[in-house]
Every structure is written in C-alpha cells, then in structure tokens.
Design a protein around this nucleic acid. Structure first.
Lengths: 182, 182
DNA sequence: TAGAGCATGTAATAGGTTACATGATTAG
DNA sequence: CTAATCATGTAACCTATTACATGCTCTA
C-alpha cells in the first residue's frame, strides 16, 4: 500500500471539517507551514480525485460578489481510508538538508562564506522558533477546548525541539569554523 | 539564479575527485545517505548534461571482465559554477515530516496507535544516531589527513544534534500520550 | 546455481511548483 | 488607483523514483 501522502494530508485536513480548496491552502499556510505544504496545483486535482473515489463529497456554496465556494466533506469511506493510512508505519525519509550539502563542499570557497551560510541558517531557525512559540500560545487560547489540541501541542513541541537543536548546532559550528581560521 | 540542487550535489561530489556515476551513487549511499540521496535515473542524465555544459569532462576507462567505467572530472568552469552556488544563500525548505502529519490527525485513531508511531520513530532515529557516530569514528581514523574532514565533522555533528532532539521529543511525546490515556 | 556486485543507461510514471486565466470586492 | 483577498482551475514544466534492459564475474 504505497500511497500518496499529499492525498492523505488533504483528507486529514478534511477530517477537521468540510472545507474548500482555498481553505485547505490557508490551513497549510497558517498551521502546518512548518512541516508540510501543498500548492493549488496539487490541492484542486486531489479534491477532484477524492470525490471520484468516494472519499469526499462536493457541494457548492453560492456567494454574492465572490466566486462560489466548492466545499468538500469527508465521507465515512474517506475516514476509513484515512485511519488505515494513519496507522501504517511511516517510511524512512531523507530530508534534503541543503545547508549540509553546501558545508561539505566548503573547501571550494572561503571559510567566511561557510560561516555566513551557517549564520543565516541560525537566524532563520531562530525566527522560526519564535513563530512556533507564538503559534503555540495563540492555539492554546483560541482553541483550548478543541479535542485535537493535545496532538497539536506535540507538533509544536517537535518544532521547538528540532529548532533548538539547529540553533545549538549552528553556534557550535560557527565556533569550530572560527577556530579553523586561526 | 534558481538552479537545480541535484546538479550541484553531483558537481560537488566531483569536486572531491574524478568519478563514475556508479561511484557517485555509492558516495550518496555510504557518506551522505543521512541528508541527501539520488537515484541513477537522476545521476546519469545529469552527468551527461554537465559534460555538455562544459562543467565536467568524460573519459572512458576500459576494464577486463567488467563494464567500462565512464569517468567524469570537474573542469575549471565547473568548479567556478560550484563555488557560485555554494555562496548563494540557501532558501527556506519545508521538510515533510510525515510523523507530524500522522500525529495531528491522531484523533481519528486509537491513542495507542499514535504511540506506536512515535515509538517506531524514536527507535529509528536512535539507530540512525548510532550509525552517525560509527561513521564519524570511521572517518576520523580512515581519513584524518583529508582536508575536507573538518567540514564532514560539522555534518556529523548536525546529525547528532538533530537526532538527539528527535529522541528527546519522542520520549516526551510518549509520556504526554500516556497521561492522556488516563 | 542463485544472488550480489560491477556498470551503464532509458522509459514510464509519479510528485510537485509556477505561471497563467478570470473577475469581483475591499482596504489602504 | 493599487494591491490584496476571495476563489477556482489548468497547462507547462521541473524533479525524482521505479522498473526495465544488458551482461559478466565472483562468492556462498
């Protein structure tokens, strides 16, 4: 059962409630931008497919002065398919860490250039860490009663742990490069 | 200058010395499997392209009883192109963390299933951490005089930091789920 | 004698982004 | 008046994996 992750990410979002493709895109951007994203070029065709496969049903909501909203709702069948996917072991996945790729070829450039790379990386992850903490707080107050909250907290926690590790590594690496210079 | 990362990963490997596509594949598998990988379906066409663009030159090494080796060597132009890419800031990249995707939809399945997911994840990262440490040691003794060594150490260090963070998070998350159960 | 290693490559397919097309409303 | 937001979708284009094709040698 080697199945499309994007499909299940959309189906999973629909498990939170009926939504349009536009809403789904927003969800990616505003909630899980830190660890997942999809473009319209993926979302709309997948919604069509989900409807064809009976995993979701479409209904059209007419609006004045704005385009119609095509709302998709997960079906029982869809929920079953999602559940099946959720319990499947996740396969090993190689995250492509471009910063490391650039580092290991560092002998080709000046040391200070590698340092800049790591500094930029550190700053970005620092910013991301700040954003995660803000999001975490916002969720805690805005949706304290949401039954999905505990799971979300785990995800935020993950982001905090990983980004802290990135930053710690970056500091250490910058120190090591400074020593190399001498 | 939005250019193909795969191309530069191949070019970077060639900066270590002349190699065949087969060698390059091995390099991915034996050295940087933790943070980058490419298939033959990418490697061979890219080598062809590099030669066409003058960034590498090909020569054929005949062997007895084995297929010929098509050796590619980086050119001065190739080295320049690589250097240019190396100093370019790395763009933000969203690693697709499937484990998180499965977690945030966790309400759809039994709590213990989410726990299994995290336990499997923790065990895998634990194993990866062990492998990184072994690789680190092996490199330290095997190639102590290699001028690229300091950069490699930074990459190993990265792997250690990140995997430690994964494991710590996993322990914490399992604890949180255990509490939820009660 | 089966399987792994050596070694090159292509074709089919899947996964994913970007640009384009359309067009009204609203906020600055 | 300009830009953003709302809203749907497609086509062209990259990026990447998997399966296939070939064929010899060495090891278990």
């Amino acid at each position: 059962m080697k199945e499309n992750k994007t499909k299940y990410s959309v189906l999973g979002i629909l498990s939170y409630g009926p939504m349009s493709g536009y809403d789904i895109k927003k969800f990616y951007e505003q909630s899980i931008a830190g660890f997942w994203s999809e473009s319209y070029g993926q979302i709309y065709p997948i919604l069509k497919r989900l409807a064809k496969e009976g995993l979701a049903i479409k209904s059209v909501q007419k609006q004045e002065g704005k385009p119609d909203r095509h709302i998709y709702a997960i079906t029982d069948e869809g929920r079953k398919a999602l559940q099946q996917w959720l319990v499947e072991p996740v396969g090993r996945h190689i995250g492509r860490h471009e910063i490391l790729l650039k580092l290991i070829f560092g002998r080709q450039i000046e040391l200070k250039e590698s340092m800049y790379q790591i500094e930029r990386f550190r700053d970005r992850q620092q910013q991301e860490l700040t954003e995660i903490r803000q999001l975490k707080k916002r969720f805690k107050t805005d949706a304290a009663d949401n039954p999905n909250m505990p799971f979300w907290q785990l995800a935020f926690d993950y982001g905090e742990h990983v980004n802290r590790a990135y930053i710690q590594w970056a500091e250490k690496a910058i120190g090591a490069l400074r020593k190399m210079k001498k």
